[in-house]
Nucleic acid binder design. Structure first.
Lengths: 139, 139
DNA sequence: AGAAATAGTTGCGTTTTGCAACTATTAATT
DNA sequence: AATTAATAGTTGCAAAACGCAACTATTTCT
């Protein structure tokens, strides 16, 4: 997939995919949402090759989706945290998860449920709403 | 990205990405939502290499996201159409588009707006709702 | 100080992509 | 019906991306 081709499509989806469409990137972001912060966390949970993880984390930081901050003040080691731009990817992650749960049989059902932190209630399916709040179906 | 690795994560996101996470696949699906049906439509609009397009369309058909149907009854040539499983990807496409529009500067603003067919009204941002309809923010 | 943990880097083989030319079949034109 | 153009791939080869395992360099812990 040549960068030039995608650019020339001049489309938000194409541009977004240049940032988060490479292999492992979305899974790395999912791990970040689930609380992973450090290189070894991501590596152990995902089993991704270390050199690939390095390049993905670097790119995500460069593009402002993750940020590197010291583990504690004065420390030399750093951790990778979602920026607001990164946290805003939650709709994509949840839409992906729910689509997967609806259409792809896994052996053990839906292994992860999203619940509200405050109430502990499960969230509902992602829906596309019109500006006045009615649900919209495709086409 | 080894298939084995992803499988062992046993996660809807990982499984979903095995189907739609390869290069060009999501853009092909976007074209399908925009009305492309035939091989040359996809190829011309995206500029994707023809051999890649072949393998992606085959996989999407194999997995039930697209289906091949004769262009008209009795015709030898076929077209690629979204199945219900494919149409249900609209949340992911819209979430991606809206994230891109919010965070990625393109030279000419948001080039595509999603509108309701019936009313012509623009749709609102994708939000994650709790089961009783309140909006939920990440964390 | 010494040992263990952490965070990468490096080299190399494999796989996936991209490109362009070529082929085969179907549909349109005369 | 024969010829031409359009459509839908296929093939071979070069370039880029990925995967693996071993190695290195810092930090942190004891």
């Amino acid at each position: 997939m040549s960068k030039n081709n995608l650019d020339s499509l001049n489309c938000s989806v194409a541009t977004a995919l240049e940032l988060i469409g490479e292999g492992w990137t979305i899974l790395i972001l999912r791990e970040a949402f689930f609380g992973s912060r450090r290189f070894e966390d991501f590596q152990k949970h995902l089993g991704v090759a270390r050199n690939i993880l390095t390049t993905r984390l670097n790119k995500l930081c460069d593009k402002g989706i993750l940020e590197r901050t010291p583990i504690k003040q004065g420390a030399k080691r750093h951790e990778y945290k979602l920026t607001p731009m990164g946290r805003d990817l939650h709709t994509i992650l949840i839409a992906l998860t729910q689509w997967g749960d609806r259409w792809l049989q896994t052996d053990q059902g839906a292994p992860v449920k999203f619940v509200e932190r405050v109430t502990g209630e499960e969230i509902s399916d992602v829906t596309i709403l019109s500006k006045d709040g009615r649900e919209i179906k495709p086409r």
